[in-house]
Design a binder for these strands. Structure first.
Lengths: 151, 151
DNA sequence: CCCATTTCATTTAACCTTAAACTATTTAAT
DNA sequence: ATTAAATAGTTTAAGGTTAAATGAAATGGG
C-alpha cells in the first residue's frame, strides 16, 4: 500500500508538532503573564473576566464550556473573583440551579485596563511571525481544536 | 508607512490565533489524557518519564529547563515518582548540589508501554490535519516558541 | 401526579504550578 | 585563602485543575 511508510513519517511529524505547540503555548503564556499578574489577577481570573467583558453575563456552565475547564474549576475561580469584589453571582430566575455571573463596576474597569496591556504583550510575543503566518497558524489550530465545544 | 492599518489587522489575527492555539492545546491534552492516566500516571509525571526514557538520566535543573517549569514544580513531580518507585535520585559526584534523576526498571517498562498508547492517541487527536499541515503547524509553533530565529 | 433521570453547581482529595524565601554548595574576585 | 555572588534544590503559601461524589432543581415518562 505504501501507507506504512508515509504513516511513519506522519507519526514523527505529529510528535514533533505536538511538542512545538505545547512549548509555544507555555512560552507565550510566560511572556504575557506579567502584563496580567501585575494587577493581582491570575491568568485564570483574567480569562473569565475577559469573557464577561466581551460576552456579557454568563452562567457558570457556559463559562466552563468556553474555557474548556471542569465545573469544579469554574466554581473555584469565580469564588475568588467574588471574594475580591470583581464579579457577582445572580440566581437565574428561569432555572434556580443556574448562577449567572456578572461583572461589577470595579471588575469592569480593571479588566478593560488589563486587557489593553495584555494585547500589547501578546503582539510582542507573536513578533516572530508575520501576518500571513499568524493567519495560517490560527487556521490550523482551529482545525486541530475542534471536537469539543465547536462554538 | 501604512502600517497602522495592517497593524490593526495583525492585532486581530494574533488574538484569534492565540485563542485557537490555546484551545487546540487543551483539546489535544484532553484527548490524550486517558491514554496516560489509565496507568495511574499524571500528565506531568508522564512528561518527565518520557524525557528520561529518551534522553537518559538528567539533573532536576535540566528537566525543569526542558519542560519549561519552575524548580519547585520539578521537585514535587519527582517526589511523587520517587514515592511510587519509578525513578531514583542520585547525588552528582561532580556537584553535590545537583541530583541526577534516573529511571528504575519498573518505571522504564511502564513508560515504554504508556508511550506507545500515547502516540496512538496523539495520532487520533491530529486526524483533522494532513501531513503537510502538521509540518507547517510544527514549523510555525517552533518559530513562535523560540521568539526569534527558527527555520 | 410521581418517580427516575438529567442537569447545574458544589465539595473534596490529590496533584500541578508559580513566586518567593531559604539551605547547601560551588564559583569567582580580591 | 576569604568572602561575595551565583547556582541547584527545597519549602511554603496561594491558587489552578481534574475526577468523583453529592445536593438541589428541572425534565420527562408512566
Amino acid at each position: 500500500m505504501g501507507t506504512q511508510y508515509s504513516g511513519d513519517y506522519k507519526r514523527v511529524a505529529i510528535l514533533d508538532a505536538w511538542i512545538k505547540l505545547s512549548r509555544a503555548g507555555i512560552t507565550v503564556t510566560q511572556k504575557i503573564r506579567p502584563s496580567v499578574e501585575k494587577s493581582n489577577l491570575t491568568m485564570a481570573q483574567f480569562g473569565v473576566l475577559e469573557m464577561l467583558l466581551h460576552l456579557g453575563p454568563l452562567s457558570q456552565k457556559v463559562i466552563g464550556l468556553k474555557i474548556l475547564r471542569s465545573p469544579g474549576n469554574v466554581v473555584m475561580v469565580i469564588d475568588n473573583l467574588v471574594r475580591d469584589g470583581l464579579v457577582r453571582r445572580n440566581v437565574n430566575p428561569h432555572d434556580r440551579r443556574s448562577h449567572i455571573v456578572e461583572l461589577l463596576p470595579i471588575g469592569r474597569s480593571l479588566i478593560e485596563k488589563v486587557f489593553e496591556k495584555h494585547v500589547q504583550a501578546l503582539e510582542q510575543a507573536f513578533e516572530a511571525l508575520n501576518s500571513a503566518e499568524v493567519r495560517v497558524l490560527g487556521r490550523l489550530c482551529k482545525k486541530l481544536g475542534l471536537g469539543i465545544d465547536a462554538t
